[in-house]
Nucleic acid binder design. Sequence first.
DNA 1: CCGTGGCACTCATCATGCACGAGTGCCAGC
DNA 2: GCTGGCACTCGTGCATGATGAGTGCCACGG
Lengths: 353, 353
Amino acid sequence: MSAAAADKHLSERAQHLLRALVERYIRDGQPVGSRMLSRESGMDISPATVRNVMADLEEMGFVDSPHTSAGRVPTVKGYRFFVDTLLEVQPLAETEIETLRDTLSIGDADNPQILLTSTSNLLSAITRMAGVVTLPHRDNPSWRQIEFLPLSDNRVLTILVLNQREVQNRILHLDRAYSADFLRQAANYLNAQFTGRSLKEVRARLIRELRETRASLNDMMLAAVNMAEKVFAAEEDAGKNYVMAGETNLMDFAELSEIERLRKLFDAFNEKRDILHLLDQCAGAEGVQIFIGEESGYNILDDLSVVTAPYSVDDQIVGVLGVIGPTRMAYDRVIPIVDITAKLLGAALNSRK
Amino acid sequence: MSAAAADKHLSERAQHLLRALVERYIRDGQPVGSRMLSRESGMDISPATVRNVMADLEEMGFVDSPHTSAGRVPTVKGYRFFVDTLLEVQPLAETEIETLRDTLSIGDADNPQILLTSTSNLLSAITRMAGVVTLPHRDNPSWRQIEFLPLSDNRVLTILVLNQREVQNRILHLDRAYSADFLRQAANYLNAQFTGRSLKEVRARLIRELRETRASLNDMMLAAVNMAEKVFAAEEDAGKNYVMAGETNLMDFAELSEIERLRKLFDAFNEKRDILHLLDQCAGAEGVQIFIGEESGYNILDDLSVVTAPYSVDDQIVGVLGVIGPTRMAYDRVIPIVDITAKLLGAALNSRK
DNA sequence: CCGTGGCACTCATCATGCACGAGTGCCAGC
DNA sequence: GCTGGCACTCGTGCATGATGAGTGCCACGG
């Protein structure tokens, strides 16, 4: 065991070589040999020396060799060290930022669904990997307005507006018809009571009133309460979904050439559960977060990395977006792209108000 | 050239053998040899005789051999003949129908989106292939009711109800605020004019009135007309989408083992254009339709078959559903499944009214 | 004339062997 | 501590040959 290996600290030279190795491997996905490194590292160093350093790095777990006489490949630990301390993030060119801004601000800002879809497409298009954006979801939305529109027979179209502009509608089936006047009064009553209150509060009061004055509540009110309950549930589920684009880009990476792996991965994308768990974790942190290979904790993502950033409306984090690609992705480009896209999406959503 | 080959008509025996061959090939995907057929056909016939018949069938284009000494494989023409004249459709077991009915009627019939998604899932689950369901779309929906709800500032939430229960909403940005009273009057006016009319008619009259009485139309009306126009457009686009499930099932078929093919196919699924064109064609025909291999006209679907059936509400075809799988799919099972699922989906949508 | 057994032939598949080249580990020398 | 040299390892590509499934054709017999 060499001195360097025993010592936890990586020498300047070892770091430089590790960095060259990771960059090279990210570029073309081939195990990197000693000769290549000795030429490309920029340092005046012979292949034999490089080999010695590599032996140390391997012992410390930063690199690995697929077999005896192949070059070296970064391990997860190697990528992690690279990302944490060696990486120089490339600031995006002003023109690139401009492109992003254009796509995200001009677009149908009116329709959030479309905005999210194009954001996801955008991420996948410029990174050539898979882009993902969770649906925005406020923790505790506030009641703004309810309206009842009589339809034929005993059906009533119920519209509930939340926050500034989120609209939910449902059709209630009642056991008898109500007059338009009566419906208007009911809506007025509810609005007077609840406008501006948080849904949590509304729910609590509804339940209380339901108990206290059950006798005085007629079917209409009961149904309305029911509807509100359903809206609560729907609102809570809203965060439980995402838009993904460019999954097929992942098929191009050699790491995923086995059809069986690919199938599991795509199944997981459709299943959504695991991916959502992972993205949820990122909603807490402030800025860009990176999961390399097994770090994610989901073995479907074993040799994939995920780069995420939360996005906010009114300084409140409402969702997460990110990029999924092979561990050997160009972190220096992807990180700022994800970062800026999250900020621009937040801005676009804010401007809609 | 033998007599049988010159003659356009297939002998009883040739048909029987072709049928045995197709059935066998559908079961295990391997080219079928003469010995196998002579044993399995049920006829008392030697392999050599089978070979003679095969030579005829090959000359007529019903079967093909991948190379000199492999067995025979059905061609598109072979499948077509099989499906058209040899196939005995398996009636579904009552229990299977029951399962289908349960899933489709119990479910959240209230929310059509969910209903469609579960139909698609159902199709893919029982066929182990990809299921697809287009969004329902009426040719010429009728105006039922419009309502304007004032929001803050100059924004007005506009709700348009079509047919019995389809609800569209949009937020209009106006150049000044209007009173709730004024908005109610405007809505009343529009409803009095248009309720029950078809959207086409409404559009024509709006355009005419817009021209004739431009002076008298205020901003509010202009915006409402604008909104209606947008709803028309959205309504026309509604048919331009579908829900797909179980695409990953297709990865299991050897025919698609090349990653490049697979990628093109999945890209086409995401792109939706070609698939929609194909499905649109099926909206005309009455019952189940089958496209085998190149018959679809889209070379992404070259060795895939598509089995579709339209589904109806109020005896009007509003959408199409189907299954996409390898040409060697079990047509005898898939055809009745698609058929019945279409009928049950129509029934489920009808019952929601 | 049709069905049949037999025989030569074809072709994909698989295992084997071999040469090549990239790259490593180690050692001795500067 | 760095370097060149050397033996060694291992994946890749290629040619080879055996195997087996299956065909096409032909001659024979009912």
